[in-house]
Write a protein that binds this DNA or RNA. Sequence first.
DNA 1: TGATTATGCCAAACATTAAAGATGTCGCCG
DNA 2: CGGCGACATCTTTAATGTTTGGCATAATCA
Lengths: 328, 328
Amino acid sequence: MPNIKDVAALSGVSVTTVSRVLNKRGYISQETYKKVYDAMKELDYQPNQIARNLYNQRTYFIGLLVPDISHPFFAEMAHRIEILLFDQGYKVILCNTQKSNTREHNYIDMLRQNKVDGAIVATHMLEISDYEKMTLPIVAMDVFLGDSIPTVCANHIRGGKLAAKPFIEGNARHVLQIKGNHDIKCPAWTRHSVFASELHEHNIQCIDYELKDEEFNRCQYYEIIRKLVEQHPEIDGFFSTDTVAVNAMKYFLEQGKRIPEDVMIVGYDGIDAAKTTYPSLSYVEQPFDKLSEVIVDILLKKINGENITENITIEDIRYIEGKSTRNC
Amino acid sequence: MPNIKDVAALSGVSVTTVSRVLNKRGYISQETYKKVYDAMKELDYQPNQIARNLYNQRTYFIGLLVPDISHPFFAEMAHRIEILLFDQGYKVILCNTQKSNTREHNYIDMLRQNKVDGAIVATHMLEISDYEKMTLPIVAMDVFLGDSIPTVCANHIRGGKLAAKPFIEGNARHVLQIKGNHDIKCPAWTRHSVFASELHEHNIQCIDYELKDEEFNRCQYYEIIRKLVEQHPEIDGFFSTDTVAVNAMKYFLEQGKRIPEDVMIVGYDGIDAAKTTYPSLSYVEQPFDKLSEVIVDILLKKINGENITENITIEDIRYIEGKSTRNC
DNA sequence: TGATTATGCCAAACATTAAAGATGTCGCCG
DNA sequence: CGGCGACATCTTTAATGTTTGGCATAATCA
């Protein structure tokens, strides 16, 4: 692979001059400029970023830690985040932590060894103290990593209320909600507790089920729902993330239940799958675009030295009414 | 951030000795080993990979170019590929080319400047010659990038036949198939041409529609289907990728069509969405696990100097029968 | 003449590694 | 007991590709 010396040799100028051309620094004549550019083209020269990174002490690399990129929520976010970052000159290193703290630990070490400029973290298998003692600029995505690290998430209080409303208005009596196995510090937890208390306020029974550690795989959802509904045949309402909700819809329909007459279903997130069900799913939509914009914005500010620790809550969260809920 | 000098200073040995401890090279006394490790721990030292990369002339970085990571097919593949690579010590740089050749070009340049050890490419907006002249080890994922770059894909001839079978056996008369806007060199194209010729052999009309460049966004699928079906009300069969197929199912059900009695639907890929429809979708399943294993395997072999140019076709592709097709 | 423009050279810096060299210790043989 | 070699341990030095600052040297222009 050609290096700057080869370019200098071919164009008949010094290495310094080539560097000056590359970085548009100092005086360069039109003629030299052309000579150097021609040489670069002829050699198909690509400046060695590794060497530049070493000298400049920054890499423009960003670590993106998600539990599982094949989960549509993270895929949607990753897509937007990567594009926003690339357009600002940053490169994303993808890390699937798989809900394993060993893996998460290895990824964090790897990112630090590779001197990433920052990280976006959507997982939290490590101790909060592990994150807090890091000097690396971090933004937490829908997850709490301690007071010193800003969390960006949608307003889950509002989300929980929005999700509860159709059940209240539709006169549901026994609602099953399935929540992730995140610990209590996870913002997503909020929507579920708000949801539950909203229902209780209206004397609607809320049956809570928390997915176990080993139940995070999406292909298990259907079975889990089947068992739960068998245990609670009285269920006439269901609330969970979209990925779970679409499985629930399938199950209820297969059982001959009418939706929304017999069972109402509300999803959360607004991923593709929520938009292609029949009957169409009612769901609370997370502001993917806004979330990713704010996450990237905060991260870049932190990288540029701003000391940001406050959490940011995105307010624009909407309820999209489909045909899986009824209005009485 | 502490560097190897700080560790050396704190442990009272030379920089080289620390390096030897790190790389387990040469003779190190138990005592020195301990001193160095204690110092590393005390300083929370992380070896600088950038400097190592520069010296060793390899980065263990792999570029992953996909059109759009939020598309479930790529998300599923990316997930598996990233895990396999990380477990082999490689790091994945995520690139969403967005079907833009400018972006793709910029990504390729970026990857070369960052001296990635290899790349997995699932997009092809550039000229084949652009890829062929690169010295970078590349594996093409379900895409053709010229004779010198190995393509890994499932057997789409078999896939096309498997997809056609239920329509033939179910006595469909007018089948609409929607295919991606990939040019004719894309392996995925094969399944659609095989599908069409299989139908023709059995005197079934096959209406082909090719998505336009600007129609790659999944939220547009429903509208496209609506227009096509309005133009062809005789349609009693539908074949496409899962992401399109689930939209078709929604549309037909909303139109009051019975599935499979009035319209049969077959999907392709086997993503989550295909598994949560009601009635359950019949689909041809791509071997995600096997595909990703082979892609990573071939790439690592190429990185290690093997000259691999032959395409690899994965045979284990299956038809999963759901309730969206009928057996007459 | 003196400022401006253009270029070159050299050395240092970034953090690390590897080859070669220095130093010291130990055992063994004559 | 002196010398030699084998081995253990650590240091010195050069290298990886790039940028930058300081300094020197011209040529050009006003």
